[in-house]
Design a protein around this nucleic acid. Structure first.
Lengths: 183, 183
DNA sequence: AGTGCCATGTAAGTAGTTACATGATTAC
DNA sequence: GTAATCATGTAACTACTTACATGGCACT
């Protein structure tokens, strides 16, 4: 049940329409919780119904017309309560590890090409994160002071960076193993 | 579409009944692709229908009776083709990063407790992986030789270890930040 | 009038989760 | 005989995905 909370967070950062949210999910929030526009519109409807958000008054509710939403007090309270709620980490699901395990049984086939393709995707993502870090947090000194908002957002970004670093490192190892096995 | 392939892999490692598969998903394969018994039974039905697996002949098809499945040639071929198939990595979805980002907007609340709880869960998982590594691959020397099967399975396990290491490191950092912010 | 993009949606299908049902076997 | 456990399943629901529909507005 994280999508509604992702949307509430995004709307608190900046009131937006469905399409604007979709675009921001493709960029920043979406790096940790992706969503399509269909999901977002549906969820916006539910959140409005629940009284957590409302369309800005000036917006006429017509089809094809932009509707901007803002978070209401109830929505903010719900989000604040969710932040500290006990919720276990979801068991990891990774298809690539699975493929290697399958390769252990049926042979590596064309797997090396896939490893290299994923490697370059992850390298690209890592580079993107680093650029964002430079742009948004590059002005901070080594001790990384800053306000609560800035520090927490940087911490989240560092999670993305470390995660991609993990992938790049592990996939490089996998490539070495596969080349040795093919030899 | 990874669950059927996870099941095919597990059945190639060892022909099993639905319940045995469920247990193995709770232990080894499931570390990378979890599944409940309901999902597994449903998928076994589909795989049998598709001609990828069959119930061992001696098994009578009665309710409450054990049915062991084995992989047929078609199933093995499907799995081998999947191994090298182009399939993009799924966008990361992590609720914890999201919670930090929400905390940036509405305050950290009881988040530190959750960070510590997750930290101890991830430390436990890391310890489990290390034990498995010691048990299954501890006999190998530093250059880690071994057969294809052994080397690939070890590579998969190392992914789990590195992943948990990432979490532990990042959550420790998060705990430090939160303690500073609370101070 | 036609093209392209902005914007919001509907519909259908797949995957995964949660709750419950029921038969068979073993231990006491 | 009854309780626990093994074993397989059904049903209902939620979340997510994919494909398509439709209206508004700007430009030419």
């Amino acid at each position: 049940m994280s999508l509604p909370h992702a949307i509430l967070t995004a709307l608190l950062e900046k009131p937006s329409s469905g399409l604007e949210l979709t675009r921001r999910f493709d960029m920043s929030i979406g790096y940790f919780w992706s969503a399509t526009h269909q999901q977002i519109y549906r969820e916006l409807g539910k959140l409005e119904q629940a009284g957590f958000i409302r369309a800005l008054p000036q917006d006429v509710p017509a089809r094809g017309q932009k509707r901007e939403y803002e978070v209401l007090a109830g929505g903010r309270a719900e989000l604040a309560s969710w932040v500290g709620r006990a919720e276990d980490p979801k068991p990891l699901r990774d298809a690539f590890a699975l493929r290697l395990r399958a390769a252990a049984m049926v042979g590596t086939g064309e797997l090396l090409g896939e490893v290299e393709r994923h490697l370059s995707l992850h390298r690209g993502q890592l580079a993107t994160y680093r650029e964002i870090e430079q742009r948004d947090f590059g002005h901070l000194g080594a001790e990384r002071r800053g306000g609560r908002e800035e520090r927490l957002q940087h911490l989240v970004l560092r999670a993305g960076i470390e995660m991609e670093r993990f992938w790049v490192g592990w996939l490089e190892e996998a490539a070495v193993e596969l080349r040795e096995l093919d030899a």
